[in-house]
Design a protein around this nucleic acid. Structure first.
Length: 951
RNA sequence: GGGCGGUUAGCUCAGUUGGUUAGAGCGCCUGCCUUACAAGCAGGAAGUCGGGGGUUCGAGUCCCUCACUGCCCACCA
């Protein structure tokens, strides 16, 4: 019996059921168009008048190692609301899920496992280790996707990918080879950020700078004379990393620095190492900082490296991959970098070469992944030359990526950011972008398709694994051991998930239908890591895929997505960033278990105002669980009435459901009103979602459902639901029809926000015989302006204030809730139409305000305690000792309020400038306000007088 | 060192191109187990919109300035 609902909403069983149903029934699958022609047609449809007919979105792939946290749930909720909304609006929606192999993170995790088993990746060897990671991935990877299924995320599970799947790996390889052919990938020895713990190079983006207290050591380098003897003179240099001095090859001073003019061309003795190093001149050196003399360590500092290049200096790498001093470090070889630092400082001090130690705070780079202090280190790596033009006159990758975002001459943008502020941040970064270090010294990932030749030392880069060197034909070739940065593969996703690079006339339906994607929903933390790379790669590689008609693809069609929505961060209730170490992580699954997915989704949606982080508080979620329960109970009420009506032979015509309800001009006031409210709410919700205002949309629905539908409409309509034998069945049926059809439409309206609850109740509305497999496949409510009966809105509003006024008055008079009392009504201002509306709607006014009888007066009788209630003045007749003090306080307060309102109106109306310049409706409004305030003030003053007199 | 946000009720936040008496949820206070719902109903209290100055007939909204706060970017040893 679908209509027999338990008294309180219990989400658990219901959610499990529907989550499983949605996946099993493949409700959100969007298959590949059956032919290339169809794909092309869909593409056409997108640029035609029905431009939104396809809505494609990629799920930012979570790491395989990940577990779902609040940030994911927030991101997925926002995306899912948009996706469900667009789907219900009739778009052909595709949301593609997948997971990222997450090179470093996953390798670290499996390595930790090996350690606990007493072995290591080195002992296993590369092949066995990689196999081991695959095993792990097959077993545990993608836990997050399982959690998403439970939360009902409406992705197309048929299209789930993993970034190391064969077809995506093909794309990675093609991209690498192509860029290499275009001269945009190069290999060389440069200073890179090196993590001694992960033992790999990391990109600039993977370094987080943390301000740290440290020291600035001042070291004296002895000047040697022409005969190689210490002259007794010193140059003092300052450094924050004394251990790097082992690799010093020079000391640089500014050429015009007068202090050092006499030392130009001289040599210095490098302390501890004893070798002689030159004094070099370079304008880069700042005369103001420290002593104006800089030690030069090309192998361990990016500036020094550049200096070394300019002056043809050698680079001496004194550290190994684990951060220990190597053989180049003489007596310090084998020491850890910090042990070496300590010993070096000690030794310098003993040799009286330490001129001073100062406290110094500077920014120290840490590995984003493991928080180890990063070491700038010279090593051979692979780079993408993002600023290089492949040919003269062509654009570089970064230039394209800028053009895709920057408004063109007509103000159009191929990619639009929301909030708009991120456009600036993105452009700023892209304008200053450096070459991208893409090689990682890991085993888990896409291995770089390059082979080194032992004979000629040259490199062969190829689409197919080569057997011989492309340059000398030697068979002595070995593959590069490095793998690619994880973001290299994820940057390709928008093209690769739709079949790139294998796009030909028989295999391009997906690409034509779904590329470019419509929207990317993501966090700003991966704006540069991922969003920027997708834009670079998308613009670069998609440009080579002609449009279906064979014409070249313009930039606007090459971009990976047309819109980027950057969401905020979810913080804890105290606005602290959630982190495991702080222990303030809110596990979404736990909260979901307690309050239900819908309540958590609604919390996130209602707090999601752009640009503001979310301070997640369980209190809000409790409130929205109550909201879900409220709707549940409204449904129970409705179902109860449906059954009672059925006994009388009154049923709702199924044709009345599934569309936007309307009300005839002669329908009862509350019917016209609730329909008008629904339509205006629908308009507001659609408009809000269009602008990513999830909060506005959620609040509008909440307000309608609870504030209008439940609090007022249901209470009023109860009077119409007459099931007695003598009842007018036609009017009962009409009332029931409005009730059910508005509820059904409201369920559809709410569905993207609360998919589970609405699915359950929607099926119940249709008593187990729904017109579709799911509410998610029905049409989203659309508003019609002519269905909004403004007159009904105004009238009900007046009646609401009258009812509230009487209720307030009753409270003031301490009328017990159960007692109904007579009320006298006087229209206090002819323009309000107060008595007329009341007399037209006596029934529910009396019911809602608990009035036994209403008497309309045309004149004010003295001696009565008049009270302003909306459009009328009322007297609540109840014999009770009036609390004079309280009454007087209330009136005094009212008077103050009215005086303020009056003064404000008078001040403005008395101002000629205002009258001359303000728009008419504002002036009109103020005049009305002035009149009203004056009247109210008069009444309140009189009442106060009266009160005093009677006392 | 650059750049970008934020500051509105006890808390978390809205406030559309400047325009009538600044709103919501939660919390708080009071009264109600009214047959859809106590996860509820009804009523209520609560804000000099961070400080100062300016533009304007009119400023929470625009400009300047200060304070506090958060974030991003940056190779000065």
């Amino acid at each position: 019996m679908p209509h027999d609902l338990p008294k309180a909403y219990d989400p658990t069983a219901i959610e499990d059921h529907w989550a499983e149903y949605w996946v099993r029934e493949k409700l959100f699958a969007q298959p590949t168009p059956s032919s290339a022609t169809e794909g092309a047609q869909r593409r056409e449809a997108r640029s035609g008048p029905d431009a939104q007919s396809t809505f494609t979105i990629l799920l930012p792939p979570p790491n395989v190692t990940g577990n779902l946290h609040m940030g994911h749930m927030f991101e997925h909720t926002e995306s899912d609301i948009l996706v469900r909304w667009r789907r219900m609006c009739g778009d052909r929606v595709l949301w593609v899920p997948g997971t990222d192999h997450a090179g470093i993170a996953t390798q670290m995790l499996v390595e930790r496992q090996l350690t606990s088993e007493g072995t290591s990746r080195q002992q296993l060897g590369r092949e066995a280790f990689v196999e081991r990671v695959w095993q792990w991935k097959r077993h545990y990877g993608g836990a997050i996707l399982g959690q998403m299924k439970r939360l009902g995320t409406s992705v197309d599970w048929q299209r789930e990918y993993f970034t190391m799947d064969e077809r995506l790996s093909v794309a990675v390889r093609e991209a690498f080879v192509r860029l290499h052919e275009q001269g945009l990938i190069y290999r060389g020895a440069y200073i890179v950020n090196w993590c001694p713990r992960c033992q790999t190079a990391i990109s600039d983006l993977e370094v987080v700078h943390v301000e740290q207290k440290g020291h600035l050591w001042e070291i004296r380098y002895s000047v040697v004379d022409d005969l190689g003897r210490d002259s007794g003179e010193f140059i003092t240099v300052a450094t924050t990393r004394p251990e790097t001095m082992l690799g010093d090859v020079a000391v640089a001073v500014h050429p015009q620095d007068e202090r050092y003019l006499h030392l130009h061309g001289k040599k210095l003795r490098l302390p501890l190492m004893g070798r002689e190093i030159p004094v070099i001149l370079d304008e880069w050196v700042s005369r103001e900082f420290g002593t104006g003399a800089v030690k030069v360590t090309p192998a361990h500092d990016p500036n020094d490296f550049a200096l070394g290049q300019r002056h043809n200096l050698p680079s001496i790498n004194v550290m190994d991959s684990t951060g220990h001093i190597n053989a180049e470090g003489g007596a310090y070889a084998g020491l850890d970098r910090y042990a070496a630092r300590k010993k070096i400082v000690q030794d310098l001090e003993e040799q009286k070469l330490l001129a001073g130690v100062k406290d110094y705070t500077n920014n120290v780079g840490h590995c984003d992944r493991c928080k180890t202090v990063v070491e700038p280190r010279l090593s051979t790596q692979w780079f993408v030359a993002v600023n290089k033009k492949p040919q003269d006159g062509e654009a570089s990758m970064s230039e394209l990526a800028i053009a895709a975002v920057k408004p063109d001459a007509t103000g159009n943008k191929a990619i639009r950011f929301t909030p708009e502020m991120y456009e600036k941040i993105y452009l700023e970064w892209m304008n200053n972008i450096h070459d991208w270090c893409i090689s990682r010294q890991l085993w888990w990932g896409h291995r770089i398709p390059a082979w080194h030749c032992a004979q000629c030392r040259k490199i062969t880069v190829a689409r197919e694994d080569p057997t011989v060197c492309a340059h000398c034909g030697s068979a002595q070739i070995t593959q590069e051991t490095d793998v690619l940065d994880t973001w290299f593969s994820s940057g390709l996703l928008p093209v690769s998930v739709f079949g790139w690079p294998n796009i030909d006339k028989n295999n391009r339906a997906d690409f034509d239908a779904f590329y470019p994607t419509s929207l990317l929903v993501t966090g700003f933390d991966i704006l540069f890591f991922w969003v920027a790379r997708m834009i670079m790669f998308g613009c670069w590689f998609a440009a080579d895929v002609p449009l279906p008609d064979g014409s070249p693809r313009p930039l606007a069609e090459s971009v990976p997505f047309r819109e980027v929505y950057i969401h905020a961060l979810v913080r804890d209730a105290n606005r602290e960033k959630m982190s495991k170490t702080k222990g303030n992580v809110v596990d979404p699954i736990e909260i979901v278990k307690q309050y239900g997915t819908d309540a958590v989704r609604f919390t996130l949606a209602s707090m999601a105002s752009p640009g503001t982080d979310i301070a997640f508080s369980v209190g809000r979620t409790e409130g929205y669980r109550a909201f879900a329960n409220k709707i549940w109970n409204a449904a129970r009420f409705i179902f109860m009435n449906i059954e009672r009506a059925a006994e009388l032979g009154v049923t709702v015509d199924p044709a009345a459901l599934g569309a936007m309800p309307t009300a005839a001009a002669n329908a009862p006031l509350e019917a016209r009103w609730v329909v008008a409210e629904l339509h205006s709410t629908v308009a507001k919700v659609n408009a809000s979602l269009e602008n990513y205002r999830f909060d506005d949309a959620a609040n509008a629905i909440y307000q309608f459902f609870w504030g209008s539908f439940c609090d007022w409409y249901l209470e009023i309509v109860k009077l119409r639901l007459d099931f007695s034998e003598t009842a007018d069945k036609a009017s009962t049926k009409a009332a029931l029809t409005t009730l059910v059809s508005v509820f059904e439409a409201a369920l559809r309206l709410l569905s993207p926000f609360m998919p589970f609850l609405t699915e359950e109740l929607w099926h119940a509305v249709y008593d187990g015989k729904p017109p579709a497999k799911s509410i998610a496949l029905t049409r989203y409510p659309q508003a019609h302006a002519d269905a909004i009966d403004k007159n009904a809105l105004v009238k009900i509003h007046k009646l609401q204030s009258l009812v509230s006024g009487v209720r307030t008055r009753r409270k003031e008079l301490n009328v017990p809730e159960k007692i109904t009392v007579p009320v006298k009504v006087l229209e206090w201002n002819s323009s309000t139409g107060g008595s007329e509306i009341v007399s037209e709607n006596l029934g529910f006014v009396k019911k809602l305000a608990q009035i036994s009888d209403i008497e309309f007066l045309s004149d004010k009788c003295e001696g009565l305690a008049w009270y302003v209630a909306g459009p009328a003045e009322v007297v609540v007749v109840y014999e009770a000792t009036i609390d004079v003090a309280a009454e007087s306080e209330r009136l005094t307060k009212d008077i103050a309020k009215y005086e303020k309102g009056l003064a404000s109106a008078e001040r403005q109306l008395g101002n000629e400038g205002f009258l001359a310049k303000a728009p008419a409706h504002v002036v009109e409004g103020l005049k009305k306000q002035e009149a009203e305030m004056r009247l109210l003030l008069e009444k309140a003053r009189a009442a106060l007088e009266n009160l005093k007199k009677g006392n």
